[in-house]
Write a protein that binds this DNA or RNA. Structure first.
Length: 270
DNA sequence: ACTGGCTCCTGAGGGC
DNA sequence: TGCCCTCAGGAGCCAG
């Protein structure tokens, strides 16, 4: 499940292949994602060079002189470069062909992703306009967090997963950050102390940075250890319910908070 | 302005 | 062995 680190790793891997190449065609197999794929993707992109591949939150922004395409990978989406002659498989919904013998292939079994046209000013698109700061910038600070959390009664976990507060923190990293900060995920965000807020902001940045540096983290990466220098971020609580806490040995608990499974140590996160 | 609930989709995994 | 049921999850959207 791509969270911000996975999206950033995808962006960094594809940017050198894409930027400077010219789009020769867009080939669609399935148009019905979370939203229908915008028609401009087919009418505007072909013939244009790719000038940028940026990221805002978990959105990828494919920039061309004609405008920008927004790509979201949802939960099961992948964006890969494949040789032009590579045949599509199941769930390969869309191909973007380039003039450098490369095809960018969008694959998404559960179709929670999206691909939309955002024109010349993508950051004013409704899906991007109200997004909170990037978590790894100074704008996401304890001071900012405190101002946003004041008077709020919502649990801290859904709060930090709210993209209008801060982008890019999904279910995995929310649970992990709260564990590192020693905060119970159901704590009303408005009653956190300034010290807890400082620790949580710091923990989020640390976890995301570590995940990006190690190429992203999903639970399935735990079995993918064929490289000796590959050090997957060890998940402390996510999907470890019933197993002992790595710090104190107390069984990790699982609880639904805001329609999402949350994992925490009742001893370390009172 | 907030908050909580619903929804899309399909693979995985548990239970019988 | 195999079928069926439930669950998971990003985030927009809606209702209270």
């Amino acid at each position: 499940m791509p969270e911000l680190p996975e999206v950033e790793v995808t962006r960094a891997a594809l940017a050198p292949l894409l930027i400077g190449a010219t789009i020769t065609g867009v080939h669609l197999r399935i148009a019905k994602l979370r939203h229908p794929i915008s028609s401009e993707i087919f009418t505007q992109l072909p013939g244009n060079p790719i000038t940028a591949l940026d990221r805002r939150g978990k959105y990828l922004l494919l920039g061309t002189p004609a405008g920008t395409a927004l790509i979201h990978l949802g939960m099961t989406g992948h964006l890969r470069s494949v040789p032009a002659e590579s045949l599509p498989g199941p769930y390969d919904h869309l191909d973007i062909s380039l003039d450098n013998n490369t095809t960018v292939r969008f694959n998404d079994p559960r179709r929670f992703g999206l691909m939309l046209w955002a024109g010349a000013k993508p950051l004013t698109h409704p899906l991007l306009a109200d997004l909170g700061p990037e978590p790894l910038t100074d704008e996401f600070s304890a001071d900012y967090f405190s101002r946003k959390a004041r008077q709020r009664s919502v649990a801290v976990k859904p709060f930090i997963m709210d993209a209008k507060i801060v982008v890019g923190i999904g279910n995995i990293y929310a649970s992990e950050s709260l564990f590192v900060a020693g905060i119970n995920p159901s704590t009303p965000v408005g009653i956190l102390t300034s010290e807890q807020i400082t620790q949580l902001v710091s923990a989020s940045k640390q976890i995301l940075t570590t995940a990006i540096n190690h190429g992203g983290t999903t639970p399935e990466h735990h079995v993918n250890t064929d490289s000796t220098d590959y050090f997957p971020l060890r998940l402390a609580v996510y999907q470890r319910h019933g197993q002992p806490c790595l710090t104190c040995g107390t069984p990790i608990q699982k609880q639904q908070i805001g329609q999402r499974s949350s994992f925490y140590c009742p001893t370390c996160q009172p």
